[in-house]
Simulated scan of single mutants.
Amino acid sequence: MSAAPLTSDELTAWSRFIHEICGVHLDGSKGYLIESRLAGLLRETASGGYAELLYKVKGDAGHTLRTKIINAITTNETSFFRDASPFELLRHKLLPELIDRRNQAGLRPVPIRILSAACSTGQEVYSTAIVLKELLGNFRGYDIRILGLDISDAAVAYASYAIFSRMEIDRGMTSDKLSRHFEPVGDRWKVRDELRATATFRRANLLEPIASTPPLDIIFCRNVAIYFTEQDKIRLFRNLGRNLARDGALIIGATESITGLCPEFEPKRYLRSVYYQKREN
């Protein structure tokens, strides 16, 4: 027997709890999302309704149910080379200019530090690694580290595994890139070791200070803030800004803007892309 629909009070309580544990803001129109995403957990825990499920989640000392809630609620929509413009920006402007600056500074090996915030199952990270490989030819003389952060344990584990289904590959991966950068494993495809070695994944809540990292040259944070309140958006980008190198670049979603929200960042334009850098003091 299916549970009764969320009541107004249950929706309020669940929205508050979800915001507390992962920062996602669900307004009064999102009851259907909570019902659809948590229906499986409702059955798994033999809960008679959403109020009972919430009671069980809050009483779970091991936080196993809380983790399952985060995995269910957070949106893991992603694909390889999603929205081509940021990767063209990376290939033709940001990376060449970054490498030139590091060469002029005499840094050897040339350090390149990139963050994919809310990396989901890793496609953005590996797309970035492919751009680097195709731009540089090989990684000799470079110290490349791409960090993927996500609040979902399940997403981080999947990204670390670096093996993708045919359906995932078909979303954005061309046949020539597939043959060069992946190897078949049964009916799935594994990222080649040279690319996989550049990537590290870990769980993180982006609304909390990011654990110690070297200054980051490029930060991807695309289509993440759309799920946050304005106050949390400011908190998010200030957290990221603390880890962004002075000459680093922040790339957000094509339909997003932080102009007026975070005055410490200055928008820059390259062809069809907009990115942000820290303003000069």
Rank of each mutant, 00 (worst) to 15 (best):
G241F: 00
A249T: 12
G253K: 02
V224L: 10
L240A: 04
Q231D: 12
N223M: 11
C221A: 14
C221R: 06
C221S: 14
S212L: 03
T255I: 10
F220I: 08
T255G: 14
E230M: 15
A249S: 15
E208G: 00
L244Y: 02
F220W: 13
F237M: 00
P214F: 06
F228G: 02
D217A: 10
Q231S: 10
I258P: 04
F220D: 07
A211L: 12
I210V: 15
D217H: 15
I258R: 02
P209F: 05
T213I: 11
I218R: 07
G248P: 14
I252A: 04
T255N: 12
S257M: 12
K233I: 10
F228K: 02
K233W: 04
I252R: 01
L250T: 13
I258H: 03
D232H: 09
L236P: 01
P214Y: 06
C221L: 08
L250V: 13
G248S: 10
R242P: 00
I219V: 11
G253C: 07
P215K: 09
V224R: 01
Y227T: 06
N239E: 11
E230N: 15
P209L: 13
D232T: 08
R235I: 07
P214C: 10
A225F: 04
N239I: 09
V224I: 08
E230L: 15
I226E: 03
R222W: 01
D247S: 14
A249V: 10
P215W: 06
L207N: 04
A211Q: 14
Q231K: 13
A245G: 12
I234V: 15
N243Q: 15
F237Y: 04
D232P: 08
K233T: 13
I226C: 03
T213Y: 09
R222Q: 07
F220H: 09
F220V: 11
D247T: 13
I218K: 05
I210Q: 06
T213C: 12
R246E: 15
V224M: 01
I218N: 07
G253N: 05
A225E: 05
L244I: 06
L250W: 11
R222K: 08
I226R: 02
R235V: 08
K233P: 06
V224A: 02
R242A: 05
L216Y: 07
I258W: 00
L216F: 10
D217V: 13
T229E: 08
D217P: 13
G253A: 05
R246S: 15
Y227P: 06
L207C: 05
N223D: 13
N239W: 05
L244S: 06
A211N: 11
R246P: 08
G241E: 04
D217C: 11
F228H: 02
N223F: 05
L207H: 04
R222Y: 02
R242W: 00
I210C: 07
I234F: 00
I226A: 04
S212V: 05
D247Y: 11
P214W: 03
R238W: 01
F237S: 00
D217S: 11
